[in-house]
Nucleic acid binder design. Structure first.
Length: 825
RNA sequence: GCGAGAGUGGCGGAACUGGCAGACGCGCGGGACUUAGGAUCCCGUGGGGAAACCCUUGAGGGUUCGAGUCCCUCCUCUCGCACCA
């Protein structure tokens, strides 16, 4: 029988050919051609590619190969998102400097990508830890600083007192440091922010210009930006000069306010503590809340804690006195850090009021009548008219009531309408080594001054020790920290905060277009030719942060005159995550290094071959949905490729001869055309899993034909079509057989097969016959049969007759070629 | 807690806009063949029933000639998160 399918040698042969012939296969796109990109670019700190990422890369490659055969030239670059916490953690654990660790991982992951037969364009390769890359982060930062888009302010961080280090949220487990187990504190640091809130409206408006983004992601972004119209309202405070200003999105419920609640960080709260003295209940409460970690304060299980200050505010409408409380659930960075409590119409306020026995005062009367404040079990449902609200009484709930309330507070001079955003400015400071140094210098005399452009890049120093260190290692590098002030020339200290790695990934798409340009951040003319990215493929986990930051930075670059567009990504395809049982938590979670539930493809490639891994990975499910990893089905993919090998080698042994000229379309021809249509349509929406299913049926059809009456020419043609259609998914095996069958040049340089619509459909159809919506029989009909004919045939059909005999047909619903539903009485 | 998705056989999944539920694959059962392999091929495989038929897409309601698909309520899981007042 035929020779065995030796995947290892076939794959080695083709991978080496693609490597040598790279120029012909991948580096062919010219300015103005299609631009596809994967997001994220590989994160080498994870040290090994795992199948969770592997699906993204394989899908991107299959898509590239499909597009190539369809005659489209595509730029598909690849680079490395190289900064980040894991490399620094590895350095602390093993002493290997993050740079060495990262470069070794890049080399290894590149080899893994190669072993999957992926054709990415490495001529545009970049790594964000390369000074040629991160210097432009610094350059952009300086431009933003000049324009007031970068600034410093205080913000709380997670502080581990044991490690004397700032922790990422990920490092905080149940309010404790995951390494030392110490209780995590909130600590205020002065940190750098980017003013994304200035772009909130533009980012919101831009979503309407993205028809090829899913509603899912657009909705998430809209909600994240969270534009809301509301009002700031001032409450005078007995015994205090300054009023307390609250922000509310529901000024219409003003008369339902029965208390004010302040964040312990609020200036008025601080003043109250000062007056009460250091041993007062207020001082102790503030101290206790400040010791609570952010997580505790924000967690769902976190108890709402409050303290009556004994200070009274005056209600601006009724003039009544209402108590001022301190509350842990009011956060200083939201709104004004103070709220008016309206228990009757807000769940959180209701819970707080119930716990501390504060009055509840409904100001909306529902259609069922008024509500008894004593017996309420929660905030009143929506839809009513205002009551107990002075002049406002009778106004129905909604925009009109809010507008009326705003007009009223403005007229009285106690407040103003205000548009609020949920979005907050982007905190980019990280107290870590392995990131882009923020180009600022602290001088005693001149304050915080920017590093001059001529001194860029500010390089990460190499003389840094990592083992057993506390705090930010960068801050202990003397060579780095000690610097001359660029203004006065005196001694000064460098900023030791580095940037969030999301800064790197916010503009890398532009750098791919001119990766080595040492003069400019962005080559504007190339950007003009290539942008926007035609197809961006990325995991759904980036639906909000990364994509919002990239859209923000693109607008900044537009305002700087570097690019002409606001939206960097024309089409967005969001991949679902690969999930897997996490043995330590017992839950099904996304596959990721930090969760410790990864699977490396290496072993599978060694056992079954790269093509099998590719087929299986794409076959596992629809790419936009999350899929749970299991290896049970990998044998099926392996068997399928063995059978493809089998039919191809049998076809190769068929006698050659002149084509018999024109012949009648055979069943195999019809199957061929039907398969081309299915695979083409599936590939266009990235559904390679159903494309593979169609190809499995096609393979079986060809195998049957080999035992049947088909001519050798017909069979050979079918096999060649099978190879073409399978190429994006299993490139090695298909290229090999294409060559052996004498196909000539590479499959990649051939064209995607076209189908004849007439042949892609069957001549006869099965019409389902329903009686009162239940399937009672099937008819075999000519395609396109008329309703009258179908009804007549149905009535005559012996399975249908008993159901309609002696009955009136009240109605017939006919869907041609599909279904006939007879409604009888 | 908030925002967004998802839930279909023993398992992964199919069914683009409402129209034969379960394609394709895994697993399992039976058979064939053998140079005994993780091989290959054939048949069967949602549940109940002898059959006619009946039941079945997380649960419960609704719209419709017809619902996995649309609407309402609830449950569970996943992703994101900065308790946004």
């Amino acid at each position: 029988m035929a020779e065995r399918y030796d995947h290892a040698s076939i794959e080695a042969k083709w991978q080496s050919r693609w490597e040598k012939g790279r120029a012909a296969f991948v580096d062919t796109a010219e300015p103005g051609d299609k631009f596809y990109m994967l997001n994220m670019f590989p994160y080498p700190s994870g040290s090994r590619l795992h199948v969770g990422h592997g699906r993204n890369y394989i899908l991107g490659d299959a898509l590239y190969r499909f597009e190539r055969m369809k005659g489209r030239r595509v730029l598909n670059p690849m680079g490395w998102d190289a900064f980040g916490l894991p490399a620094e953690n590895a350095a602390i654990a093993s002493g290997t400097p993050p740079r060495e660790y990262t470069l070794a991982n890049i080399a290894r992951m590149k080899e893994q990508l190669r072993s999957l037969g992926l054709l990415y364009d490495w001529s545009k390769e970049l790594a964000s830890c390369d000074p040629d890359y991160y210097r432009w982060n610094q350059w952009l930062f300086l431009r933003m600083w000049e324009r007031g888009l970068a600034y410093r302010k205080q913000a709380p961080v997670n502080w581990c007192p044991g490690c004397r280090t700032v922790l990422a949220n990920e490092q905080v487990v149940d309010g404790r440091c995951e390494r030392s187990g110490d209780a995590v504190e909130l600590r205020d640091l002065t940190q750098w922010f980017l003013r994304i809130t200035h772009y909130a409206d533009r980012l919101l408006a831009g979503l309407d210009e993205l028809p090829h983004w899913s509603d899912r992601v657009k909705t998430m972004q809209r909600n994240w930006i969270g534009r809301s119209r509301g009002a700031e309202i001032e409450f005078r405070v007995e015994g205090f000069e300054e009023p307390v200003t609250v922000f509310t999105t529901r000024p219409d419920t003003l008369f339902g306010a029965t208390f004010l609640a302040l964040a312990p960080e609020h200036p008025a709260a601080q003043e109250i503590v000062r007056r009460a003295g250091p041993d007062s209940a207020a001082a102790r409460f503030v101290e206790r809340v400040r010791r609570e970690s952010r997580l505790e304060r924000e967690s769902e299980t976190g108890e709402k804690k409050g303290l009556d200050t004994g200070v009274w505010a005056l209600h601006p409408g009724s003039g009544e006195r209402i108590p001022i409380w301190l509350a842990n659930f009011v956060l200083p960075e939201y709104g004004t850090g103070a709220i008016m409590g309206v228990p009757a119409h807000d769940l959180r306020d209701f819970e707080f009021a119930r716990k501390y026995r504060l009055p509840v005062r409904p100001v909306y009367r529902g259609p069922e009548g008024d509500v008894d404040p004593e017996t309420m079990t929660g905030p009143t449902p929506q839809g009513g008219v205002l009551v107990r609200s002075g002049d406002w009484d009778g106004t129905p709930e909604g925009e009109a009531a809010i507008a009326r309330a705003i007009a009223w507070v403005e007229a009285k001079g106690v407040g103003r309408g205000k548009v609020g955003y949920r979005l907050r400015d982007w905190l980019i400071s990280r107290q870590r080594y392995w990131g882009t140094p923020i180009p600022a210098i602290h001088c005693e005399k001149d304050g915080v001054v920017p590093v001059p452009d001529r001194d860029l890049p500010v390089l990460l120093p190499r003389d840094v020790a990592f083992r057993g260190v506390e705090g930010n290692p960068l801050a202990r590098s003397e060579s780095f920290v000690n610097v001359e002030c660029p203004v006065c020339g005196g001694p000064a200290r460098r900023e030791t905060d580095t940037m969030d790695t999301f800064v790197d990934s916010s503009w890398y798409y532009l750098r791919f277009l001119a990766p080595g340009d040492s003069k400019r951040m962005v080559d504007s003319s190339r950007a003009h030719a290539w942008m926007p990215v035609d197809q961006y493929i990325g995991g759904i986990e980036h639906a909000i942060l990364h994509l919002l930051y990239a859209r923000f930075i693109c607008r900044v670059l537009k305002d700087l005159g570097l690019v002409e567009l606001e939206e960097p990504f024309e089409r967005l395809f969001n991949q679902g995550m690969i999930t897997r049982l996490n043995p330590s938590t017992g839950k099904i979670e996304k596959m990721s290094k930090s969760r410790g539930n990864t699977v490396s493809p290496d072993e599978l490639i060694a056992r079954f071959g790269a093509d099998t891994v590719r087929v299986y990975t794409l076959f596992i499910g629809p790419p936009e949905k999350e899929s749970e990893w299991s290896e049970e089905g990998v044998l099926g993919a392996s068997r399928f490729l063995n059978r493809v090998h089998e039919v191809a080698s049998r076809a190769a042994e068929l006698p050659r001869g002149g084509d018999g000229g024109k012949r009648e379309a055979s069943d195999l021809d019809r199957l061929t055309h039907r398969t081309i249509r299915r695979v083409t349509e599936d590939a266009e929406r990235f559904h390679f899993h159903t494309a593979v299913a169609a190809l499995m049926e096609f393979q079986r059809g060809i195998a049957d034909a080999l035992d049947g009456e088909e001519t050798p020419e017909a069979i050979r043609a079918a096999v060649q079509t099978l190879l073409k259609l399978l190429q994006p998914v299993a490139p090695h095996l298909t290229e090999e057989w294409w060559e052996r069958l004498g196909g000539g040049k590479s499959l990649l340089e051939t064209s995607w097969p076209a189908y004849d619509p007439a042949l892609a459909t069957t001549a006869r159809v099965t019409l389902v016959v329903q009686i009162n919506g239940r399937v009672r029989g099937r008819l075999d009909l000519e395609r396109g049969a008329a309703e009258a004919e179908a009804v007549a045939l149905a009535r005559a059909d012996e399975k249908i007759r008993p159901w309609v005999e002696g009955k009136q047909i009240a109605r017939a619903v006919y869907v041609p070629d599909r279904l006939l539903n007879l409604v009888v009485q």
